[in-house]
């Protein structure tokens, strides 16, 4: 009866920001990133990648409550850079790594079964929903406005309304 709607788990509410940034009053050069509708999947990778950065002093995340669909990531850096800068660097570096993993996986598939692998790659890449890694730089700019981010993956497909 009063159960939360199921789609609230992954749909960003109207007007909400995907990422909210607040300053930590107790630590110098420290920001708290509140990431909406994300979980351990991305937060843990970010924490790990940030810790590898030479200028990062502190980086940790928490998921405050299982029914509140956001994570909080706290990042402190030395005064030579800012938490936002290292975040951008970390994300950029992660994207390159995953692109690398993806192409390595494709190569490995091709090595295994040249014809079958080719077919499956076509199947996985053909839909517009998932752009291949090659399209990253071009597609990043699409997200310039925050309203774009509030849309989910599925919204990218063209809206065709045909009643039956």
């Amino acid at each position: 009866m009063n159960a939360p709607e199921r789609f609230e788990m992954f749909l960003l509410p109207d007007g909400a920001r995907k990422i909210e940034i607040t300053k930590d009053p107790k630590m110098p050069n420290c920001l708290l990133f509140k990431i909406q509708r994300e979980d351990h999947t991305i937060a843990n990778i970010l924490r790990y990648k940030l810790l590898k950065h030479p200028q990062v002093l502190f980086s940790a995340y928490r998921a405050p409550h299982p029914l509140e669909y956001y994570v909080e990531l706290k990042v402190q850096t030395t005064s030579r850079t800012t938490p936002i800068n290292v975040m951008l660097e970390a994300i950029q570096s992660l994207m390159l790594e995953y692109g690398n993993i993806r192409s390595a996986f494709d190569n490995e598939l091709f090595r295994l079964e040249p014809t079958a692998a080719d077919g499956s790659r076509r199947a996985a890449r053909a839909p517009s929903t998932y752009g291949g890694f090659g399209s990253i730089d071009a597609s990043v700019s699409e997200f310039g406005i925050s309203s774009d981010i509030s849309s989910t993956r599925g919204d990218r497909a063209d809206d065709v309304d045909i009643d039956f």
């Binding site: 920001r17 995907k18 990422i19 909210e20 940034i21 990133f33 990431i35 994300e38 999947t41 991305i42 970010l46 936002i84 975040m87 951008l88 994300i91 950029q92 992660l94 994207m95 995953y98 692109g99 993993i101 993806r102 996986f105 494709d106 598939l109 692998a117 499956s120 790659r121 199947a123 996985a124 890449r125 998932y130 752009g131 291949g132 890694f133 990253i136 597609s139 990043v140 699409e142 997200f143 310039g144 406005i145 925050s146 774009d148 981010i149 993956r153």
Partner: peptide, 27 residues
């Protein structure tokens, strides 16, 4: 197919990074 699953999973992972990056920019 299992190989398409792994490929899609990696694509989603990359996409998550893209979204975070864009969200960070706009924030």
């Amino acid at each position: 197919s299992p190989e398409a699953l792994v490929n899609q999973a990696l694509d989603i992972l990359i996409e998550k990074c893209e979204i975070s990056k864009a969200a960070l920019d706009s924030a």
